[in-house]
Simulated scan of single mutants.
Amino acid sequence: MPAELSPIDKAKFVAAKRATDFVEDGMRVGLGTGSTAAWLVRCLGELVRDDGLRIIGVPTSSRTADLAREVGIKVVSLDEAKWLDVTIDGADEYDANLNLIKGGGGALLQEKIVATASDQMVVIADISKQVETLGAFPLPVEVVPFGWQTTKALVEETLVRLNGDTPYVTDEGNYIVDLHLKRIGNPRQLSLVLNQIPGVVENGLFIDICDAVVIGYGDGKVEVRDINAGTVEEDHLDFVDEKNMFSDL
């Protein structure tokens, strides 16, 4: 159960639990990919099962789709949903302006498409993901397989993410190149430059997309920062007991 989890996992859990407050009955919800987003899917599944919450989920990866179906969330494609009320997802890094690096789980293309097709994007994260300047986390760049070595050579300071002896392959069949930049002084400019390189499909910089971040702490504290309203709210969530649906984690 969450009380037995590490402080980081507790932080992820309380952030995900608090983020369910952004979801209302009848909403079309973008479901992110990654360990923190998985907590959100489970929390929403609990509300569907126990409270009768009715939502439609649009997953950003096959992994998320499988989990959502497993916990009882109705899953449709973005084409079927057309537009979403909110997308809730994790992040690998976020700065004070809520610019993000995402894609550590290899799903950045679907994540960015779903997030930009939403009225609101909410990021859930633990406090360790907060940075003054983006770039410490490797920046994922998705490239098409054709000529990917040439595409890779066009970008400086690259390191290919490997899965065994082969590049990491996304749900779309593309490859991921990780850029170890250490510091990104101008994320907006870098994003534009990368996407102009032939063979690049998309990059993991999410600029002016995130509206709010829900930050979890290991002691149950939660902080909600809304970039549009300019507000910061604090809350504290108690952990669930051993009879909760998370008892097997």
Score class of each variant (00 low, 15 high):
M245Q: 09
D119R: 11
I73A: 07
C43D: 10
M121P: 04
E46W: 07
N203P: 03
E202Y: 06
D66Y: 12
M245E: 06
L139S: 01
Y94C: 12
N99V: 04
R161T: 03
V177A: 03
A15D: 10
L205D: 05
D238G: 11
V213C: 12
A96S: 14
L179Q: 07
D66W: 06
L139V: 07
V48Y: 06
V177P: 02
T158Q: 11
A115G: 03
Q120G: 00
P140Q: 11
A15Q: 07
V14R: 12
M27D: 11
V75Y: 03
S35E: 13
T170Y: 06
F137Y: 15
M121C: 08
L190T: 00
W83L: 09
E157L: 12
D9A: 11
N163R: 13
G216V: 10
Q120Y: 11
I215N: 09
D66N: 10
R183K: 15
Q196V: 01
A15E: 10
E234Q: 12
L194V: 01
I88N: 05
V75F: 11
R49D: 14
L44P: 05
D66I: 10
N174Y: 04
I88Q: 04
M1S: 08
D211A: 05
K12C: 08
A16L: 09
N99T: 03
N203H: 13
A125M: 07
R188K: 15
D171I: 02
A153D: 11
I215H: 08
T20G: 10
N163G: 00
C210V: 09
V169K: 02
G103H: 05
G105L: 13
D211M: 03
V144R: 02
D21F: 13
Y168N: 01
S191T: 02
G52N: 11
G147W: 05
L162C: 01
V232R: 12
Y175C: 03
E156N: 10
G72F: 05
D226H: 09
F13R: 04
R28G: 08
K112M: 12
C210R: 01
L159A: 09
A19K: 01
Q189M: 12
W83P: 00
E156W: 00
S35W: 04
D165E: 14
D165L: 12
K10Q: 12
L154A: 14
D51M: 08
V193M: 14
V48P: 05
R28Y: 13
D79F: 10
A11P: 04
D208T: 01
L100R: 07
G218H: 13
W39F: 15
V23I: 09
G218Q: 15
K112L: 11
S118D: 09
A15I: 06
